[in-house]
Design a protein around this nucleic acid. Sequence first.
DNA 1: CGTTTACCGTAAACGCCGTTCACTTACTTT
DNA 2: AAAGTAAGTGAACGGCGTTTACGGTAAACG
Lengths: 254, 254
Amino acid sequence: MTQVGTPAQSRRERQREATYDEIVAASRDLLAEGAELSLRAVATKMGLTAPALYRYVASYQELVDLVAFEIDKAATLTFAAAADALPEDDFAGRLVASVTEFRMWALANPREFGLVFANPVADASCLRREEMLTLASSGRHMTGQMRALWEHNHHPIPALDELPPSVREAVLDPVIPAKLDDIAPEDRGLAWLFMQGWTVLYGVVALEVFGHMDPRIIASGEMFIEAVRGFAPRIGLADDVDRLEAIMRARIAG
Amino acid sequence: MTQVGTPAQSRRERQREATYDEIVAASRDLLAEGAELSLRAVATKMGLTAPALYRYVASYQELVDLVAFEIDKAATLTFAAAADALPEDDFAGRLVASVTEFRMWALANPREFGLVFANPVADASCLRREEMLTLASSGRHMTGQMRALWEHNHHPIPALDELPPSVREAVLDPVIPAKLDDIAPEDRGLAWLFMQGWTVLYGVVALEVFGHMDPRIIASGEMFIEAVRGFAPRIGLADDVDRLEAIMRARIAG
DNA sequence: CGTTTACCGTAAACGCCGTTCACTTACTTT
DNA sequence: AAAGTAAGTGAACGGCGTTTACGGTAAACG
């Protein structure tokens, strides 16, 4: 018998979770204001003292990880919304819309981007590292879109036996933010395409966000467009590049 | 008549320059030890107090910029040495050797890489920004190799009138670390290839250094190899990819 | 030569940071 | 009602970037 009056979490647990939410909210406010993220600043904004936060996070780095995770989760909603501006069956368009929104979000929120994607992932506890690599919400979103596209257009994917050994291992026992368990082993080459796509996207966006590129190219987004166009044929979109470019330009201009 | 006894710089100027060198040396030592770079630590290592450093740098950020610049300059020497392991007329091989050495250096010195390449360039003073973008020693080295290759194999380059307007502007009035003033306007599409190559390289290396990738793929270097192979055809090296891959694998293994 | 000036370095202090520890308060559990 | 647990505080430590006021020393100048 399930005890009806018993909530899934006790009063204290609910209170505690609410405090976590408040910590994240205060942190995001700080970042939005352009201030530095610090335990003391977060605590002050919440109306308590810095040591109190140690009841919730074990260190500053853990606060950063927590906030980064939540920021990534929230940003993913905007990527999904961008995809939803296109028809459900336009898988290519939806992917490109998400990817373009990712770029726009990164440029508009460089500090948040840095926190989530330029924060060296822990090398110490390997478990923690796996978490970081597999739980990224935005990563799962992008790979989900790529997978939906493949299930629709069945573009060619590299065969297992033409992959380098380390890559074969990695796609058969994947440590990336993607649902792959129900993908047959012979189709796991798809994961290699996921990684390649992520590399292209990350590269151009990180370069733009950090400003290591001609400002005029950043402003126009031409390198981003070129990068996406260059990758499109690898996922069976060679004939769609012009249409996809139009989608990107619309999002960049808007 | 040149006054023989008169050095180009006075005694004081020489002393001052030596102090700058010592600042850089102390900073690099700190980084090599795995310690944090800080004004106080640098000062202590030099046997003086923190405020004294303000006679040489106006702020902590300026120290970072100074050290980053010198680290980049020093690292470029190793990239050049890697190229020099190959015959002078093997332009493709030399380029790939430099690029591979860049990757290996970045992975072996992630903190230094972060300082130089993941340090957001100033958005404030545009002059300072231009400096950062055009003076990068490693950048000039890579583009120099790419240029030498082009002058040798005359691979096709995009025509000016097929470039997007912002790109055309950027290649005609370039703000990148490359010697382009003696390149004819109709050949300036070469600069666009420079930027594309830099984007590919930066993307994969940054991803590897920050660890946002399957550790096994980082260890094997397969994504890096794939990225270089993917770019090679754009600079007329479609027929050389296997040979170039061998060069990369040798450097990665060694 | 002596005097002036510019430069180099120090000590002290301010306000911020992450972190630890001892202690109180309030709520939950039994 | 008693015991136990969780949350929060205040004080403190060491370190950080940075500013200020002040000495001393070496160069520059008459």
